[in-house]
């Protein structure tokens, strides 16, 4: 059995703190595996090793009231808003069936969302290491971190994201785009809405959960965040994620 935690707060720094808390609780065996769905309002999330000023247009972020937070996993910066759904899987390191090979684990852990997208009538393709494409365009990017005896595999899913804000706030190196024969990041990504998915967020979540059920062959039961998890998240928010020291770490 897994816990399904459909839990979002409006503060992106606190949202990120909860990601670390579930890693702890799952890694310590205080919780069964967790599937979490959550969202951020108008936020850029940078990768663990990234330098904020290099990846983010800070003046555009100020103009657009976009907040910026560092996450625990590596990889590139992503844009979050209410048109984007974040999914996160928290598993103990020794979870049955989890491939030993790192790249293969990215594929295996991405299959839940691939199956969910299939159930929405979309044929998604896993493009190693960490992209999910539909018709050659990116709809989801994933990343993993492995700490405290657990694995966090999390990703974005573009439902109806404001692609103008995404383009204005993220600095993407020209060489990275030219590798994909593109002029702008906007040509590389697409929203599910533009692919004909017109379901409500609640309906999309229901279909996606079915994908996770089918792939991982587990019962996923809706579960609240525990008082201890709330307390740990508040501490991490104050001590880490809301600090300049963390967000300008590199």
């Amino acid at each position: 059995m897994w816990r399904f935690i459909d839990f979002t707060v409006t503060n992106p720094y606190l949202n990120m703190a909860y990601e670390e808390v579930f890693l702890h609780t799952v890694g310590q065996g205080a919780s069964v595996p967790v599937l979490r769905f959550w969202q951020n309002w108008n936020t850029v999330v940078i990768g663990y090793f990234q330098k904020l000023e290099q990846e983010v247009d800070v003046s555009e972020c100020k103009a657009l009231y976009t907040q910026v937070v560092r996450r625990l996993s590596g990889g590139g910066a992503v844009y979050h808003d209410w048109g984007n759904l974040n999914y996160a899987i928290f598993l103990p390191n020794n979870y049955p069936g989890l491939p030993d090979d790192l790249t293969e684990s990215y594929r295996w852990l991405s299959m839940g969302i691939v199956k969910g997208l299939e159930a929405l009538g979309l044929k998604a393709e896993f493009a190693p290491l960490n992209d999910l494409l539909i018709g050659g365009k990116k709809v989801s990017g994933v990343a993993q971190t492995r700490r405290y005896g657990a694995i966090l595999h999390h990703g974005t899913l573009l439902l109806n994201t404001n692609l103008e804000y995404l383009t204005r706030t993220l600095r993407v190196m020209h060489s990275k785009l030219s590798k994909h024969n593109l002029d702008s990041i906007r040509q590389r990504v697409t929203n599910l809405k533009d692919l004909g998915v017109n379901l409500s967020l609640a309906e999309i979540k229901q279909v996606l959960i079915k994908g996770f059920n089918d792939w991982f062959k587990v019962e996923i039961i809706k579960s609240p965040v525990t008082p201890l998890e709330h307390r740990l998240a508040r501490n991490l928010f104050f001590e880490k994620y809301n600090s300049r020291e963390w967000n300008y770490k590199r």
Binding site: L72, G74, G75, L102, R146, R250
Partner: peptide, 26 residues
């Protein structure tokens, strides 16, 4: 991968590596 370095003589005095790569254990 971005490298910010400080060199003194023939030695690396400081180094900071950043970027959108994955590195395990982080």
């Amino acid at each position: 991968i971005y490298a910010e370095i400080e060199i003194e003589g023939e030695s690396l005095k400081k180094i900071k590596l950043s970027g959108d790569f994955f590195f395990y254990p982080e």
